[in-house]
Amino acid sequence: MPMPSSDRAPVLVIAEQRAGNLNPVTWETVAAAQALGGAVAVAVAGTGIAGAAAELAAADVAEVLVLEDPALESYTPDGHIAALASLVEQERPGLVLFPHTYQTRDYAPALANRLGGVLIPDCVGAEVRDAGLVLLRPMFQGKFVAEVAPAGPGPHCISFQIGAWRADAAARGGAAATRTVPVSVDGSTIRQRPEAPFQEAKQAVDLTQAERIVAVGRGIKGQEHLPLVQELARALGAEVAASRPICDSGWLPMDRQIGSSGQTVSPKLYVALGISGAIQHLVGMKGSRTIVAVNKDADAPIFEVADYGIVGDLFEVVPALVAALGE
């Protein structure tokens, strides 16, 4: 692996925080860094981040680096890029790792560019082979996985898809040293002026953002049975989605349709109730992390992509699931 032999940590993880609260996906990236071997440092940038830094110090890492600067109070790409570019230049890590969040997408590509490289985004895995580091990233909307080898001198910037690593796999080792890294960001060079984030009354559901989805198919028989499904969704904290025939019949709005002519989703949990698993449906959901299928036909193709399956009548299984979740 092209890692410089220096006494500094060769792997740098960029933590994400908002208003001083650590985004827990950071732990996934810590797990990735640990899995790659070598000393790991975690950096957190912002203001009022002592708590986040202390939390990170519980990780089994060499160091936690703290970048405090008033110009970093609210997130801006210009501010982040300036601060982190200066950090990387001082620390000279071989790899810089990010969780692939909306914020990462916003600044990390430009940061990597400043550092003379290109971010390898949205990776789902990493392997250290004889020939060096190889990253796995989905392509063509998950139809294929590409094995990608970083080239050039580095540092190599890599972001990992959320869920690609498990946060609880991050080893915690007690008390890592915390070091404040001096960065000074000239506020006048920050061109973006952010306003306060706000939540919008959802007009259209964005299923692509849902963590859990309960999807229902023609096995539900009639619109009058939908409350059953909604109840399960509530118990799971999930959004309700459907196969095309359900939306075609107007039982659910079209923006709830999953599949080639609907939404493509990859939630943490996808529960398919009475869905046969036609290829047009599968292409929209097979990237989900955990797939559960309930179908009375043991040969239904949905089971080919399911992690867990119950062969049975959804009218019996769903109420039982609701009950089991209530316990």
């Binding site: 079209m254 080639s260 002519s261 036609a278 290829i279 047009q280």
Partner: peptide, 15 residues
């Protein structure tokens, strides 16, 4: 048939 149709590249605006 449905799997086959997938291989025809057929698409219409659904609405």
């Amino acid at each position: 048939k449905l799997t086959n149709v997938h291989y025809s590249g057929t698409r219409h605006d659904e609405d």
